[in-house]
Design a protein around this nucleic acid. Structure first.
Lengths: 211, 211
DNA sequence: CGGAATCAGTGACTTTTATCACTCAGAACA
DNA sequence: TGTTCTGAGTGATAAAAGTCACTGATTCCG
């Protein structure tokens, strides 16, 4: 697909001024990312900041032993704050980013992200809003793991997931959930059964319907 | 005390250009904060960004039921990234900030923080480095609570605390530790006893020596 | 079709953490 | 000096989460 001002204008619907849209088209690169593809892995350097047009991306935090936790999802018109700082400080990534659905995004070169901040107030505002959102996301994640038990966490996990993919029936295995919540499959299976008993969900093979 | 360029120059030792130091002195306010004082409480609005000259400040995340967790410490030449975004977006604080020691800081008005970013490259760099650091802090906190057991968490808690206050003997009760780690006093008492048995710490009334 | 692979369910048990109930030591203070 | 308060230690027990071992069901594919 070709990146055009028309397209961006529709997608961003008045979020940015025309001059900025023009530069976005001129300097950034359109990308289509298939489900399951890695946008970034820990340790890699990031050379451009992804700006998601549609689809969704999950951000995971791994530890040394191969486990990992879901931090949050990025969706439409979201940007990764970590990649911002990583780029500007040319630091390696601390997280994994995986396309949860087929995702379309534009990759913006770091220099431009930096340059535009002073030239376009809407861009600066956007960048800081992004930081704000990510901090809130991380704090929400901390709230979950510190203050809530697994069954509650599982429920909010399911709800967030349905939000992110916009459908009531999730296609996911217990094993996958366990990995994203850094626990074991059996535990998740049992808790899911419990939630089903309580009438909060409906279990099927590979699928979970949220009621 | 009076805020002078000389003083700041010494404190910041070449971090910022003279013109910026000049504006720092002109527009910000020097503050001395006693131990235990609240810099900010959740729900309050922040009108200026604190820049810590010396001392240390602990940032806590509360939940609705009155419990809270320690997120990280701010020390010399640190700034709170959350207050940055909160200010710029005029949002309420999501966290509590308490002076862990007697702390000296300068309060910088939001408009200046914003304005200087385009005028002083060192300032912009500083702001983004701050975001970087806070993200790293939050990720480290998440690592702890998700991947580590309480005894390990307790040990890193103690080590961070000694770092922040620069002494090997902490003056703290088991109850306080329990609160900052969102658990109960008995649990902490037992784990501390265990650490003492392993020769990692030495317990005294109101005091813990790290070996 | 039939075997292999993947996913889910579950009993039995352990470990970790939380909670309750109480004792004891030292500090504080009148 | 004795009483009160705060901090700490600890046994008993419960609840939550993790682990092991196995079974059964469904899907996939040669």
């Amino acid at each position: 697909m070709n990146l055009t001002i028309d397209y961006l204008q529709k997608a961003l619907s008045g979020k940015f001024e025309l001059a900025l849209l023009d530069e976005l088209v001129r300097y950034s690169q359109f990308k289509q990312v298939p489900v399951g593809a890695y946008l970034i892995r820990p340790g890699e350097y990031i050379r451009s900041v992804p700006f998601i047009l549609n689809g969704s991306v999950k951000i995971m935090r791994p530890d040394k032993e191969g486990r990992e936790v879901l931090l949050y999802y990025l969706g439409e018109l979201d940007t990764c704050a970590m990649s911002l700082t990583c780029c500007l400080g040319s630091k390696q990534s601390e997280v994994t980013a995986i396309a949860e659905e087929e995702t379309e995004l534009i990759a913006i070169p770091v220099e431009k992200v930096d340059e535009w901040m002073c030239r376009f107030p809407t861009w600066k505002q956007f960048v800081f809003q992004t930081y704000q959102k990510r901090f809130d996301n991380l704090l929400a994640t901390i709230d979950e793991v510190v203050f809530h038990k697994l069954d509650e966490r599982l429920l909010t996990y399911l709800h967030k997931k349905t939000e992110s993919c916009q459908c009531r029936v999730l296609t996911v295995t217990h094993e996958e959930i366990a990995q994203e919540m850094a626990t074991s499959r059996e535990v998740i299976s049992r808790l899911l059964k419990q939630l089903e008993k309580n009438g909060q969900i409906q279990l099927m093979r590979n699928k979970i319907e949220i009621l």
